[in-house]
Amino acid sequence: MAPYLDTVLSFADVPITDAGVDTVAFLKAAEGLVGLFDLLNSTAFGVVQNDLKGNIVKVRARYDEVPTLSDTLEKLVENEKGEKKRKATEGLLWLLRGLQFTCMALQIAQANASEELSVAFGKAYDGTLKAFHNFVVKGVFSVAMKACPYRADFFSKLKADPAGGPAAADDHLNEQLNKWLAALDGIVTRLQTFYKAGAHDKGF
């Protein structure tokens, strides 16, 4: 075993070509991010994990159905356009929103070393998902933000080797995490721009 970020595919390693973002690699990296919530060790974040997982399933189902038309996320969305129910397009849209929320929260935490995770996740929620949620869902997320673990505990788990090996050094973790988040931020921004340019987000 190894520290968590060494065990999952980094968004920095997701291939991006002129044709778009590699679908299979992106989904694998997204699954790695979902697992990150296990380190937060809070049942309140179950709603976030379940939403991310459900949307990953929708996108993967479309890829499995027509892989040659879905090898990049952009092609997947373009080729679903015109169908009555664009499940993968909607799933990817919400997946991007959830990834943006998590990415922003961790970027805020990285930029403010003295700030607790509850503050960072609260700020990220206000800047991302909150605009799309009704009163009830906002309440659920409010509880989740308050249930964040202490910053020190989370980063200790992120550095730890579950098998009992040496923990990652702080410098290594920060370099790895910042690279991971920068790549994720770039992918989310790229795809959100793509959605708006093609009006793929209309109706959702």
Rank of each mutant, 00 (worst) to 15 (best):
L177D: 03
K84V: 09
A182V: 14
Q176N: 10
D64E: 10
R60Q: 13
A131Y: 08
G198P: 08
Y150H: 11
A111P: 06
H172I: 15
T43Y: 04
E115S: 02
A199W: 06
V137M: 06
N112S: 12
A109I: 09
A169F: 08
F121R: 03
Y63Q: 15
A144N: 00
L129G: 05
G122Q: 11
A124W: 06
G20L: 05
Y63R: 10
K84E: 09
I187G: 03
F132E: 15
E90G: 14
G91K: 00
A25L: 01
V8T: 03
I16R: 10
D153F: 15
V34K: 15
P162M: 09
G198A: 06
L96Y: 00
V21M: 02
A152S: 13
N178M: 12
T128E: 15
A30Y: 03
W94K: 08
N174W: 09
V59N: 01
V8L: 02
G165Q: 05
A197G: 14
R62W: 11
A29L: 01
V57T: 10
A197E: 10
K28D: 14
E31R: 14
F141R: 00
G203D: 06
F37M: 10
P67L: 04
D6Y: 09
L69S: 12
R60I: 05
K157I: 01
F132C: 04
I108G: 11
K53I: 13
G82S: 08
H172M: 08
L106P: 07
F155I: 12
D71Y: 14
G122H: 01
E115K: 04
A88P: 07
C148M: 09
K58R: 09
D51M: 07
K159W: 11
L129Y: 03
A120F: 05
N112H: 08
T89W: 03
G98F: 02
K159G: 10
Q49C: 04
T193P: 11
F45G: 07
M104L: 11
D170C: 04
N178D: 11
G20E: 15
P149W: 13
Q100W: 04
S114V: 07
N41V: 04
A124S: 15
A30Q: 04
A131R: 14
L36H: 07
D71C: 03
F121Q: 00
Q107G: 06
S42V: 06
R151M: 05
P67D: 02
A144F: 00
T17Y: 04
G54P: 07
